[in-house]
């Protein structure tokens, strides 16, 4: 029997575990220009990071290719929550789109995060909110919400007090305290954790002798960061991250990569940078992942979650009791 890829995390029911990562998929309206791409092929769409007010974004250049990776510094250019809630989400609803949508919110203060969550809870076609406490391209004074447990916890608690939608806390790899931050987010009420956001990086232009990106630093994504991401997922799962589902991401380009994240402890996976050069990746990843599960004898995806860990751990990732 073919293993099923159907996945439910934090109440989000998905046809497969592939969640299109925030910032790589716009608002779900770009890739459909390819005749062989259908949003129905993906598990969920995490929308472009949204702020309270419209945001201009960082000065260009905003992107540079690095060995097996991409460095970006978009700076959260977005039309603001008002436009997303009153124009974009209704348009997506009218289009008949069935794929679960996840808003991604980025506040400059704890209160802004709470207000964003409140605004998004007015939308009727959102499955969850991803709380972006980890954008490397936007500074909040000296505050980096995702780097330390306390500010991370404050943000999640504030967002939690807003209505009803499941919350996914998106974690940064740019801290030595990933596990502590993960715990703090779960304790504060996060229903799931997604990791990792991009790694801070820089490219210097040799002819101008200046940082190439307009924002000087950017966030590194793509295959180059995959081992870092797998290690973080494994580490968080091991430390108790199996208490809530993990969305693993970082350089996933094919079924092998997705399976690796599942084994490390991810219940779902983010697909991002690969979309820039291969819009067929979601289909290919699904097929590759299903083939791995079948070969290994897993009847369903959840049975494989965390299988890279010793048994006492990985069994907790599954709902089986035997």
């Amino acid at each position: 029997m073919k293993p099923s890829l159907r996945t439910t995390i934090a109440g989000i029911e998905m046809v497969n575990p592939l969640m299109m990562s925030s910032g790589t998929f716009g608002f779900g309206e770009d890739f459909t220009r390819f005749s062989d791409f259908d949003n129905a092929q993906v598990g969920a769409i995490v929308l472009k990071g949204t702020t309270l007010k419209p945001r201009l974004g960082n000065p260009p250049p905003r992107i540079a290719e690095t060995p097996a990776g991409v460095l970006n510094s978009i700076g959260l250019q977005n039309p603001g929550v008002e436009a997303v809630v009153t124009e974009i989400l209704p348009r997506l609803a009218e289009s008949g789109l069935q794929t679960p949508l996840v808003a991604n919110i980025a506040g400059e203060t704890v209160d802004e995060f709470a207000e964003l969550a409140t605004r998004f809870s007015q939308a009727t076609n959102l499955a969850a909110i991803e709380v972006n406490i980890s954008c490397p391209n936007v500074r909040h004074g000296d505050l980096d919400f995702g780097a330390e447990p306390r500010p991370a916890s404050e943000v999640i608690a504030a967002v939690r007090s807003a209505p009803h939608l499941p919350l996914i806390a998106k974690l940064t790899p740019n801290t030595a305290r990933t596990v502590d931050v993960a715990r703090a987010c779960v304790d504060a009420g996060a229903d799931a954790l997604s990791l990792i956001n991009t790694l801070t990086g820089m490219v210097i232009d040799l002819s101008s002798r200046r940082p190439l990106l307009g924002n000087k630093t950017g966030g590194l994504s793509g295959p180059a960061i995959k081992p870092v991401a797998v290690a973080k997922v494994h580490q968080v799962f091991d430390a108790g991250g199996h208490l809530v589902p993990l969305v693993g991401m970082g350089g996933i380009s094919n079924g092998d990569d997705a399976y690796e994240f599942i084994l490390a402890g991810a219940a779902a996976v983010g697909v991002g940078t690969v979309l820039f050069y291969n819009h067929r990746a979601p289909r290919e990843i699904s097929a590759g992942l299903a083939a791995h599960l079948e070969r290994a004898g897993f009847r369903r995806l959840s049975d494989a979650v965390g299988a890279a860990h010793s048994k006492k751990h990985w069994r907790k990732g599954s709902d089986e009791t035997t």
Partner: peptide, 10 residues
């Protein structure tokens, strides 16, 4: 991406 999703080519 070349098709409007990533906002890089500002």
């Amino acid at each position: 991406c070349g098709i409007g999703a990533c906002m890089s080519c500002a």
